[in-house]
Design a binder for these strands. Structure first.
Lengths: 189, 189
DNA sequence: TTTCGTTGCAAGCACCTACTTGCGCCCCGC
DNA sequence: GCGGGGCGCAAGTAGGTGCTTGCAACGAAA
């Protein structure tokens, strides 16, 4: 791994831990194991480095949902588990971004944010569930999709912060989320 | 309002906007409309001021849930609306706290955090719904309570950040959250 | 072998930070 | 009227910040 990538990775790590102001060039360089001057020679300024480092963390992993629903509980559990795992991995980074939204709103591009695209795909899947008469209740699939993504988001962000609020067994909790959710859409579980 | 309270309020406001590092003593004093030296004379140090200012924001408003459920949809909608409004008011502050959790985990006392106590009260209410045979499905009321609080939390935190993910009408969305949720517990809506 | 681009090191710049000192003003109780 | 406590102002401390300069070492390409 070349010096540039080391710096980008270190910048993202330090940013997640300490925020923009706390991510000093000296600290980033130290974590990257390179000289501070090299940072400026490579990126010109702290701002340019941070912008590129944060942009790098944006690559979203899309979780597929089947075109033809077969087993909604299993399919949605897999979907939710994948998103939950991914958000939990990045929780420090996400929390820092959210905390600095007031100061740097530009780093949040609402159009393509990963949860938003996931919610869209999920909404389409829920629409298919209704078309196939698997989901029999009246519901707004957009609100429903936002709801499930919101539960996943809250779990990923809050489990380590408010420890006594979240049940011990993450996997069982996840399954229960999905079961309550699907029953709410009129899917028999 | 005396100088001390002005400083405490200004400190909380600036902290919510800029975080701990961004809340400089000069900026706080300027927002409070007092001299920076007065800040140190009153509180001794920035840390003491911030600690007291943040502690002040902790006073939680408990939202009552009826002992005898009558109209679950209305009761839970009122409950959810109150919590949503309160979280949304304080969203900047909450987001900043979450963003700085890695650096200052001590400000989060997981035992008495407002969402946790709300979730506990909600769980008890859901238990009553089941005892009265209003909620007929099998569900874990602890997980269910966490689920609804999570949806509220995600809406309060995310609506202004990921604008296209949340439907336009907050009140209608809220009602739909509650309806899907209650149906998921086996309550006929 | 020479050359040249990349890196490290030492030092330093101007600015901001939390925090201190000394002095003068002004209002409030006596 | 007057003494004292609370406040503001000017100035300054030591340390951290982003960023720059000058110079030497190294390794690969020529």
């Amino acid at each position: 791994m070349n010096v540039r990538d080391q710096l980008l990775e270190a910048a993202a790590r330090v940013y997640a831990e300490a925020g923009y102001r706390g991510a000093t060039t000296r600290r980033i360089a130290s974590v990257a194991g390179v000289n501070e001057i090299t940072l400026f020679r490579q990126f010109g300024s702290k701002d340019a480095l941070m912008r590129e480092a944060i942009e790098r963390c944006r690559q979203d992993a899309t979780v597929p949902l089947p075109q033809e629903p077969v087993d909604p509980v299993r399919e949605l559990t897999d979907f939710a588990r994948a998103h939950l795992a991914r958000m939990r991995e990045r929780r420090s980074f996400i929390r820092t971004c959210m905390g600095e939204f007031e100061e740097h709103p530009e780093i949040m591009e609402p159009e393509n944010s990963p949860p938003a695209v996931a919610a869209k795909a999920l909404g389409a899947y829920l629409g298919r569930l209704r078309e196939r008469r698997v989901a029999t209740a009246e519901f707004d699939e957009c609100v429903a999709a936002t709801m499930l993504m919101g539960v996943i988001f809250a779990d990923a962000m809050g489990r380590d912060i408010m420890r006594d609020m979240f049940p011990r067994d993450p996997e069982a909790t996840l399954l229960e989320y999905v079961r309550i959710f699907l029953r709410g859409l009129g899917v028999s579980v």
